[in-house]
Design a protein around this nucleic acid. Structure first.
Lengths: 200, 200
DNA sequence: CATTAAAAAGACCGTCCGGTTTTAAATTTC
DNA sequence: GAAATTTAAAACCGGACGGTCTTTTTAATG
C-alpha cells in the first residue's frame, strides 16, 4: 500500500468523525486541516473537492456501522437475539462508538435535501441496507418459527428503525441515554410478544 | 402596529420556512433577501445578527406548531382522542403543513450542538413542552380511567415522540408518507391496547 | 545512490459570507 | 404639509470559504 493511500485513509477516518459530529456543511476544510494536521494542498492532493471528501467520509461511517452490526449478530443464532444485538449497537452509538456524533444515517438524512442530491442518494442507500437487513432477520425468524407469522414485517421494521432513530435524536439533544434506553427496553419487550413459545 | 413591526413579522415568517427547510447554517442572508424581496440593510434594520433572526424564526415555527396542536386537541374529550389528534398533526407536518421542512424540533436537534448552544437550548425547551403536553394527556387519561394504570407514562411518551420523529425522518428522506403512516397506525393500535373497556 | 515519481506544503485567488455604515425614501406625528 | 423619525436601500468592508498552482520535500524505483 502506497503512502498516499494510507494518508488518504487517515484523512477519511479523521474527517468522518468530524463531519458526523459537526455536520457536513458546518465543517470547513480548515477544520479538517486541524484535525488531520495536514495543509490544504496535502488534502486536496487526494480529493478533487470537499464534496468528494464528504461522500467518502460518509461511506466510511456507514461501512464502519455495517461492520459493527455484522460482528454483533454473527454469533447470535435466533432472530430475536440478532435484533437485540442490533439494539445494543445503537446503544453504543449513543456513546460515540464506533463513530462519534451519533447515527450517520440520521444526521445525513436531516442535513441532505434537494440541494445535496448526492449525499441524499447515499443516505437512502444506507437506509435501504439497514432496512433490508432488519427485514430479512424478521422474515427469517418467521420462516424458522421463532417469530409468529401474524407480525407485519415491513411495519415492524419501520417501527424498529423509527423508534431507535427518534430516541437517538432525543438522547443527543439532552445528552442523556435514558431515551435510547427506554426505546431499547420497549422494543425488546415488544419483540418478545412476537416470540413463539416453542420452536421446532 | 407600526409598519416596521409588520415587516419584521413578515421576515420571520418567510425566514422560518426557509430555515426549517434548508437548515440554519445552510441558509444565507442572501437566501432570506430573495425570499423576502428585501435588501440586506432592510433586514438588518430589524435584527442585530443572523443568529437573532434564526432564533426568532425557530420560535415562530415552534409557536405555529404549538398552536396547531392546541387547536387539534381542543375539541377532543378523551386522552386517546387527543393523542390521536396529535398524530394527525404530525401527518400534516409530513406534508409541509403548517410549516414546510418537517418537524422543527427534529431538524434543530440534529443541527444544533455544542457549537450552537442558544439554538440547542431553545430546541430543548421546545422538546420539553412537547414532552410534557403528551405526558400530561396520558396522566390525565389514567386519572380519568380512560387509560389503564399499568402503562409507564414516561416511557410511553418517549416511545410516542421517538417513533413519530424517526418515521418523519424516513418520510422526508424517501419523500414517501408510508413511513409516518405506518408509525401512526402502529401507535394508534398500540394505544388502543391501553384503553379501558369501560369508562366511568 | 541517483533518478524519478508521488506527496505534501504553502502561497495565492476569486467569491461569497455576515455585518456595517451611509444615504435615500417612506411613514408618522404635530 | 413640514419636521421628525422610522424604515429600507445600497454601497462597502474584512474575513473566511473552497479551490488552484507552484514549489519543496519525501518516498519509491532501477
Amino acid at each position: 500500500m502506497r503512502k498516499g493511500e494510507r494518508t488518504k485513509q487517515m484523512i477519511i477516518e479523521k474527517a468522518s468523525g468530524l463531519l458526523n459530529t459537526q455536520g457536513y456543511l458546518a465543517t470547513s476544510i480548515t477544520d479538517i486541516m486541524k484535525k488531520t494536521g495536514m495543509e490544504k494542498g496535502g488534502i486536496y492532493n487526494h480529493f478533487k473537492s470537499k464534496q468528494e471528501l464528504s461522500l467518502d467520509a460518509f461511506s466510511f461511517s456507514i461501512k464502519t456501522m455495517s461492520t459493527t452490526f455484522q460482528e454483533a449478530i454473527r454469533s447470535k443464532n435466533t432472530s430475536i437475539e440478532k435484533l437485540n444485538a442490533f439494539l445494543e449497537v445503537f446503544l453504543l452509538l449513543a456513546e460515540d462508538k464506533p463513530i462519534p456524533g451519533g447515527c450517520p444515517i440520521l444526521n445525513a438524512a436531516i442535513e441532505s435535501d434537494d440541494a445535496h442530491p448526492d449525499l441524499r442518494d447515499e443516505t437512502r442507500k444506507a437506509m435501504n441496507d439497514l432496512y433490508s437487513v432488519i427485514l430479512r432477520i424478521i422474515r427469517t425468524g418467521i420462516s424458522n418459527n421463532e417469530i409468529i407469522s401474524t407480525i407485519d414485517s415491513e411495519t415492524f421494521t419501520t417501527i424498529f428503525i423509527s423508534t431507535i432513530e427518534g430516541s437517538l435524536m432525543m438522547t443527543k439533544l439532552y445528552n442523556d441515554t435514558i431515551y435510547i434506553n427506554r426505546s431499547i427496553g420497549f422494543l425488546k419487550d415488544y419483540l418478545s410478544k412476537f416470540e413463539t413459545r416453542e420452536s421446532d
